[in-house]
Design a protein around this nucleic acid. Structure first.
Length: 312
DNA sequence: CCAATTTGACCTGC
DNA sequence: GCAGGTCAAATTGG
């Protein structure tokens, strides 16, 4: 009874801490970069922050053993039809719910077309496309490229809005467990991905306007992009954003995704309720209730918690 | 040759 | 039975 709740909370904690650690690391790198000589007191602070995160994570690692990471979805997600589902390891947390999903709407325009909504810094592999009843455009199904190599179960669906063809509704499901590996991706590699994505966007858009060659804008540094590119569909409060908004898949370290505004967290259960209506009361307690059950795979030995080398 | 995409078939829940 | 989601063989591209 309680253990389930505990599991969720542990998951949330892990997510938050991991995210925090990554951000701190980015900050450190940033400092490193800008003042090549020495980090100064800022650097020291950042190091301390980092080590605090490390400690906290390792503590959690001890007590929680990532129980809820036991995979549970009835079938899907696991793709291997009869393998995963039959495994006996849904020990501690029997995740009854399917994985959480959250949607995001992104508008593509001339400015952002280069990377579009399809680049969130992770590499995705398309595994399907489907015509959806009542929708003008087919829905694309993507899973993390590292699904096999790292067991990352993150998936996303990309649906182009039929109301505004420039808007894409992206539904994410599952958490990236390959986050760090993804961050480590070489810039060139990423650029390559971006190109692929760009092609894709163009294809689906079929908008062949002149090539607005602002490609050097692909890596937009630290300022917020034209915010018109993002469409908030949910009246999240500030505290919601601060509190719960931080799925690790968002804004990976190199945040090339200049764009990212998180929109709609929702569980599968609530999925049937209208999207645009005021969100349920959950919103008030982001961590406790928004409950990001990240089903993702096993965190396993592979996941380099507490392995400092990994972050160098 | 390998990895990614395409696409029809298949599976599952409603 | 239908619609959405996924698989996997075939195809394409680097």
């Amino acid at each position: 009874m309680e253990s389930e709740k505990d599991c969720d909370q542990n998951n949330n904690l892990i997510i938050e801490l991991t995210q925090g650690r990554e951000l701190a690391k980015q900050l450190r790198d940033h400092l490193n970069h800008s003042s090549s000589s020495s980090l100064g007191s800022g650097g020291i602070l950042v190091d301390r922050i980092l080590s605090s995160y490390e400690k906290a994570l390792s503590m959690l690692n001890f007590t929680a053993e990532f129980p809820s990471l036991a995979y549970s979805s009835p079938r899907s997600e696991g793709s291997e039809r009869n393998t995963i589902a039959d495994q006996p390891h849904k020990s501690v947390c029997k995740k009854r719910k399917a994985s959480k999903r959250w949607t995001e709407q992104v508008r593509i325009d001339q400015e952002t077309r280069g990377e579009g909504p399809l680049d969130d810094g992770y590499s995705w592999r398309k595994y399907g496309q489907k015509d959806i009843l009542g929708a003008k455009f087919p829905r694309g199904y993507y899973r993390c490229t590292h699904r096999n190599s790292q067991g990352c179960l993150a998936i996303k669906q990309v649906q182009r809005s039929d109301v505004d063809p420039l808007v894409y509704e992206i539904t994410y499901r599952g958490m990236h467990t390959c986050m760090l590996a993804s961050n480590a991706m070489q810039p060139s590699e990423k650029r390559h991905k971006l190109c692929t994505m760009e092609q894709e966007v163009k294809q689906s858009l079929e908008v062949k306007s002149e090539e607005q060659d602002n490609k050097e804008q692909i890596f937009p540094s630290f300022t917020f992009p034209q915010c018109e590119s993002y469409i908030f569909t949910n009246p999240l409060t500030e505290s919601d954003l601060i509190g719960s908004f931080s799925p690790p898949f968002l804004s990976p370290a190199t945040s090339e995704s200049n764009l990212f505004s998180l929109i709609n967290f929702q569980s599968l259960e609530s999925d049937r309720t209208e999207r645009l209506s005021t969100p349920p009361s959950v919103i008030n307690s982001p961590i406790g209730d928004v409950d990001f059950s990240f089903d993702p795979v096993e965190f396993d030995p592979n996941f380099p918690f507490g392995n400092p080398d990994f972050f160098v």
